[in-house]
Amino acid sequence: MATLQEIADWYQERAGRHCGHSDWFEITQQDVNAFADLTRDRQEIHVDPVRAADGPYGAPVAHGFMVLSLITFLTDSLLDLEWSEVGLNQRLDRVRFRAPAVVGCRVRAGVTVVGARTRPRDYLELVLSIAIETEDGAVVCTAEQTRLYRAMPDAALPRFPVLEEEPAPDAHV
């Protein structure tokens, strides 16, 4: 059984280390249209393939905020969260939209641990640097995400499926 401080120390010892990459996720027109409907952002560059073909990218692109909203989905597979009973997205910092995510492309997230510390009410604050990239290596979005987790009473120390020695290029912004 691990204490919250031991879990925080475990992550802090890994600060600056890259955790690997998520599985690929395809950006579909259906998903872009659903996001446009939900957010009421129906610009033709997103939802009209014919008109978007004449635009700056030659095809429809995902909303930047749609790509940003995929961060938790893409990165959770890289973190062993079995020790946690609840997780909350607390904040995003240093968000940058660097390249378009053209409909039909596949994206994945790379994660680097920035740091961790205990917080009031028995929560762990975990800060991650995230880079979302396409298959051709273009970095679509970068951000620093802060999450809060509460450990289960019988929590064990976490582990990563992949832990690389060097941070990913352009991952920390």
Rank of each mutant, 00 (worst) to 15 (best):
V103C: 09
G58W: 04
I130P: 04
L88A: 08
A52F: 03
E13D: 12
E125I: 08
Y123I: 09
V47M: 13
F97E: 01
A2L: 13
L157A: 10
R121F: 14
L38S: 03
D170K: 15
A143M: 01
A155C: 12
G87L: 12
P49A: 10
P49Y: 05
G55H: 09
A101S: 13
R117L: 02
E26I: 10
G55Q: 08
S69P: 00
A34I: 02
V32M: 10
L163T: 11
R98Y: 00
H18K: 10
G64C: 07
E6F: 03
L78W: 00
P56E: 07
Y57W: 09
Y57F: 09
L81E: 15
R51Q: 12
R14T: 00
A138H: 11
R98S: 05
A8K: 03
Q90K: 10
E85I: 14
A101E: 01
T134C: 06
E165Y: 03
A53Y: 04
L88S: 04
L74N: 05
T28F: 01
T118M: 14
F65M: 11
P56H: 05
A2Q: 14
F65V: 06
A52S: 13
A116E: 02
E164Y: 09
I71N: 12
W10V: 02
E85D: 13
G104F: 01
E6Q: 11
E125F: 03
C19M: 07
Q5T: 12
L157V: 10
R40P: 03
R108L: 01
Y11I: 12
A8F: 00
R98G: 04
L79E: 07
Y11Q: 12
A138R: 15
V50R: 09
D154N: 15
V32T: 06
V113M: 12
V50E: 07
R51C: 03
A8L: 08
P56K: 10
A34P: 04
A155G: 05
V111D: 00
A156I: 09
L148M: 14
T146M: 04
R150N: 07
V114H: 09
T72A: 07
R17F: 08
V102G: 11
I27M: 13
P169K: 13
P56Q: 11
P100L: 02
A34L: 05
F65N: 04
A168I: 04
P158V: 11
V127C: 01
R17M: 15
E82C: 15
V113N: 09
R40K: 14
I45Y: 02
V47W: 05
A99Q: 07
R94S: 11
A15Y: 03
R96D: 00
A156Q: 14
T134I: 02
I27R: 13
L78Y: 00
G58N: 08
A143L: 00
L74Q: 07
F97T: 11
T112G: 02
E135Y: 03
R159I: 06
T3R: 15
G55C: 06
Q43C: 05
P60H: 10
P169T: 04
G104A: 07
V86G: 11
R117Q: 08
T118K: 13
R121I: 09
